[in-house]
Write a protein that binds this DNA or RNA. Structure first.
Length: 289
DNA sequence: TTGCAGGGGTCAA
DNA sequence: TTGACCCCTGCA
């Protein structure tokens, strides 16, 4: 990968296995929107950034070389060799097919707090509505940003949400999830849940730590670990993945526990990567519906 | 227009 | 293991 710095813009040449479209639309994040020209604009690290693919080069607008090296390179998971991961799944025809369909999905390393709150909101909810609620929460409590003549809002940090109540969140119309958001903020500010330790804890311990929060069950915890804590062995099982695994690998009556055990032994350390490709493939093709 | 089913699950009994 | 759950959206 060759990095070229231009005015307030970075160009990456020879990047393999990266599709902004598939990466931002595969359901792992809720803060990226497609523009008319096919590029994607999103907010992270209190910055608005625009990413596009042009003639096999990745163009990232509104960042400096330092910001790319210190934050965005990791965020986009560009240090991980997806060719190697793909090779490891060469004997699995289902994953192979899903990886061809959704080529270039990279598992993002999002900010943990934002990812946690976003997936608490995702519970029993549809993606467009999740995006709406996350966006509204940012507008209410986050820092205002500007890019290309438009207003954006950074996702609020823990300090900005300190002291919120169920009532103050009523405008969000998040339903019963408002209680969960309040509980997460309280437990993190009090130190009961040490969110900054998630990165250094083992997968199992990190999952236990997250599940101390009300509204965080195994699925939400796995999403947070996979999409923001670089734990690629995490294998979130939702309705789509459950149906897909039952159809392609196991049987209709297989339980979540059985699927979990199978995924761990069959997919191994990159189970989460396989999960995301299978999830995207089954959703886009409405598998089992 | 109204009514109903279901949505990237989780909690509590 | 099973239903209830807040609220919105899509679809008869």
């Amino acid at each position: 990968m060759k990095i070229i710095e231009e005015k307030n813009c970075i160009i990456l040449q020879d990047v393999d296995h990266f599709s902004p479209e598939h990466t931002f639309l595969c359901g792992q994040c809720f803060r990226w929107d497609e523009e008319i020209d096919g590029s994607f604009t999103g907010v992270a690290f209190s910055k608005v950034v625009n990413i596009s693919l042009k003639d096999n080069a990745v163009v990232i607008k509104n960042i400096t070389l330092d910001e790319f090296k210190s934050q965005w390179k990791y965020y986009l998971d560009l240090d991980t060799d997806y060719g190697h991961i793909k090779y490891g799944f060469k004997d699995d025809q289902n994953v192979k097919k899903a990886m061809e369909f959704g080529w270039g999905i990279r598992i993002l390393n999002q900010e943990i707090f934002e990812c946690l709150i976003s997936f608490i909101i995702s519970t029993q909810n549809a993606i467009p509505r999740i995006k709406k609620i996350v966006s509204k929460l940012s507008e209410m409590y986050g820092t205002k940003l500007e890019y290309s003549g438009r207003e954006y809002y950074a996702f609020p940090n823990i300090e900005q949400l300190r002291g919120i109540t169920k009532e103050s969140l009523s405008e969000l119309k998040a339903g019963y999830r408002a209680d969960y958001i309040v509980d997460a903020v309280e437990k993190i500010t009090s130190g009961e849940v040490r969110i900054n330790d998630i990165l250094s804890l083992s997968y199992e311990d990190a999952k236990k730590e997250l599940m101390k929060i009300k509204g965080v069950g195994p699925k939400v915890a796995d999403c947070v670990l996979l999409f923001s804590a670089n734990k690629k062995e995490a294998f979130p099982i939702d309705v789509w993945v459950k149906r897909t695994m039952q159809t392609l690998y196991l049987s209709e009556t297989s339980s979540v526990k059985e699927i979990e055990e199978f995924a761990s032994s069959h997919f191994g350390q990159y189970a989460g990567v396989a999960q995301q490709y299978l999830f995207y493939y089954s959703r886009e093709n409405k598998l089992g519906k």
